[in-house]
Amino acid sequence: MSEDTIKYDAAHIQVLEGWRAIRKRPGMYVGSTGERGLHQLVFEVVGRAVNELLAGHAGSVDVALTFDGGVRVADDGPGVPVEAAAHTGAPGLETLLTRSHIRTEPDSRHAVAIGLFGVGPCVTNALSSRLTAEVRREGVRWVQEYARGVALAPPTAVGPVAETGTTISFWPDSDIFGTAECSFAVLAECFRELAFLNRALDITLTDERPPGGTRSARFRFPGGARDFVGFLDAEAEPGTWVPVHPDVIGFEREDPRMAGTVEVALRWCDSREERVRSFANSRPTPHGGTHAEGFRDGLAAAVNAYAREKRLLTAVDPDLGADRIGQGLTAVVSVKLDQPEFHGATNGMLGGTAVRACVAEAVREHLGTWLEEQPERAGAVVGRIVQGARG
């Protein structure tokens, strides 16, 4: 190999920024160029609208899959600022849609991050053949058009308007995603989960594509995690998941020691399986973590204390194990923290030593109170667990 062949210097380095970088390596930003990637485009735009609502600036979010292959996301918030951002000189709207370093989802227990990496709507813009942004703000309706991440013109005032809000419509680039289509079912599952975990959320998903007419679903669950447990039980195969007690046990507690809140809901059913879903700042934690460990600690402490107080366990009996207590249990454990600590880049496992102790204490106290106040139902639950441990 000659010296000329292996020569490499600064002239060979190619620096890509903004939409060019995103379009060059789309998988780095949305995970894939198939259906999964399309859903990430939706989530990046919906995430901004959802956080407007959770901050108290909007009342509802509407998402539509349009008949021509596009996606429309609308909220009734105050409208994205159109004026120039001081740190860039670009319009606020244009900054949102073109700058990947702008954080659209702040670190806060009151915000959600739906997108893969939380980069924001700029990813959606770069990977769409066209995008239209409409802002209704301070009595003026503004519109701006984009093509593959590039603004065709500055935001244009097109007339007066009475209402406020932001609507972003985009058409994923078929050169990148081919014939892949968004799944109504996948989006509905995500939005439903978010609504269970955030009681203030009100989001509607409409599919305008079916030839037989549109279909629509609204996701709003004032009962929070309790409603989530009820839904999970109702989704089970009929006859395989019969509740041992009719009511769902649930509570929410603020704890300054972990700088956050914990919400737990649970119910035992007549089954040998266990279904425990855990979340941190509205993100699923499939590998568990300190909040899930604390839940099991508190669960075991409350059940064993009750069993011994009522002499369902003798002095020589060992404590009931967490695995046995969890049989037939449906539970949702959700913490929202100001400074969550995750293990790994995918945020699949929660850390934080204070979280485990705080969650355990909350579960032990609240479940212990329920067991004392509901003796008949408590006897059915704990008696079944003890009998199973012995049999």
Rank of each mutant, 00 (worst) to 15 (best):
A305W: 02
G388K: 04
D319Y: 07
A331L: 11
G326R: 10
N347F: 09
T314A: 15
D319K: 05
L337A: 08
Q339N: 14
A362P: 04
A380R: 09
V332A: 03
L313F: 10
A362E: 06
Q374S: 13
T369Y: 04
V381L: 15
V382H: 08
Q339E: 13
W370G: 10
R311N: 12
R311A: 14
E309M: 07
T353L: 06
A331P: 11
W370C: 04
A345V: 08
V382Y: 02
V355Q: 09
V381S: 08
C358L: 03
A360M: 06
D323R: 09
F342T: 11
G368D: 03
R384G: 15
V303M: 09
A322E: 14
K336N: 10
P318R: 13
G351M: 13
V381N: 02
P340V: 09
Q387F: 09
G328W: 00
H343E: 11
R384L: 01
P375W: 13
A322G: 12
G321H: 09
Q339I: 00
F342Q: 11
I325A: 05
Q327T: 13
E361H: 08
I385K: 04
L312A: 00
P340S: 04
Q374N: 15
V333H: 12
V386I: 13
Q327F: 11
G379C: 06
G388V: 01
